[in-house]
Amino acid sequence: MGSAAYFTCPIRLHTAQYPKLRRGPTNTTFQFRGLAPVSSKVVWVSGTKGSVLRTRDGGTTWSNVSPPLAPENSTDFEFRDIQAWDEKRAVILSIGAGNLSRIYLTHDGGNSWKKTFVNDNEAAFYDCMSFENKRHGLALSDPVDGNFRLIETWDGGSTWSVVDNKGIPAALTGEFGFAASGTCIEAAAGRWYIASGGVDPGRIYSSDNGHQWKVTNSSIAGGAAAGVFSVRFRDAKHGIAVGGDYEKPNGTINNAAWSRDGGRSWHKAESFLAGYRSGASWVPGRGAMAVAVGTTGSDVTFDGGKNWQSFDNGTFDAVECVSKNVCWASGSKGRVGRLQWT
């Protein structure tokens, strides 16, 4: 979709570390909550009005590879989550009540898309999905008949089946997931995690196989528009959770937590995020470093989520780090950025 004229600004995050935040337009006004970087060069984003874009040159140019939805209803679809493995293969999730929740798959870089799931339960509303490898994935719906609903694929998104909900603890009244950054469900180190809100405090579910689950209070404050928006693990033990209240985006209390026992228990951060944050990502190869993004800015932790410090006041919805030197972020008004350590 044209060229992206990036500019660079140095930001001091920590002693002797000087990353550069590169922002640039995609020549669109879509809001990209779906983000799937494959490398420093190949990145997929998805969002409002049925949009899917891909770059193969590190964001210099973007191609519109959106599925060919009917013109009269393409604006109804919001692809809030995307998973990609290379420049050819990607899976996208559209959110919404009833049959607006659906999944599409491409094997040819978006030249063609196959519709592989359409929700047929009017009570279901799918929020996010995650894959533990190229074949096995789960997608999460808000509770149906008192339990969160999951669908599962064992063939990379080509087919999906509903998971028996007997192994999922009952949801509390008003509990749900947030379709904000594609990270309300997480697969990491052979385990699965679900983040929830709508109740106080927000809760985090964990499972060894995606079928039998346990649930724990997160210590993150919850409410009608508040709770845990993103849960991420860097290994089998160390996890972070971020969130807040999207109706009070400048709130700085009880919006982050950390775990060191695989999610069995969660502890409040000692210093919190500088506002509501919808997405987070560990930085590979940098130990206990992670970043979080939201509508009022971005933050970094160097100690596994115990303490956070703000480093930027720009608006982003999702963030994913692909290496120790490169993280990608996406958000409103066609905004995509790259945080790079030199």
Results as ranks from 00 to 15, higher is better:
284 P>A: 02
256 A>K: 06
307 N>R: 12
298 S>R: 00
181 S>M: 04
178 F>I: 05
280 A>V: 04
70 A>P: 07
33 R>I: 12
319 V>A: 12
48 T>N: 13
258 W>P: 12
39 S>A: 02
287 G>K: 11
91 V>M: 10
3 S>Y: 13
203 R>M: 12
332 S>Y: 11
278 S>L: 13
234 R>N: 14
307 N>F: 03
340 Q>D: 14
42 V>S: 02
127 D>I: 01
152 E>T: 03
102 R>T: 00
303 D>R: 01
105 L>W: 11
122 E>C: 05
267 H>S: 15
121 N>M: 05
32 F>V: 11
215 V>F: 15
109 G>S: 07
171 A>S: 13
74 S>L: 12
12 R>A: 15
116 T>H: 15
64 N>F: 03
235 D>K: 10
65 V>C: 06
311 F>N: 02
287 G>C: 10
69 L>V: 06
84 A>S: 13
294 G>N: 02
122 E>P: 08
134 K>Q: 09
198 G>S: 01
220 I>V: 09
155 D>Q: 03
80 R>V: 13
319 V>Y: 07
124 A>Y: 06
117 F>C: 04
75 T>C: 05
220 I>Q: 03
85 W>R: 13
237 K>M: 15
102 R>V: 06
193 Y>N: 04
202 G>V: 00
176 F>N: 09
10 P>W: 07
8 T>M: 02
251 G>M: 13
74 S>K: 11
30 F>C: 04
323 S>M: 01
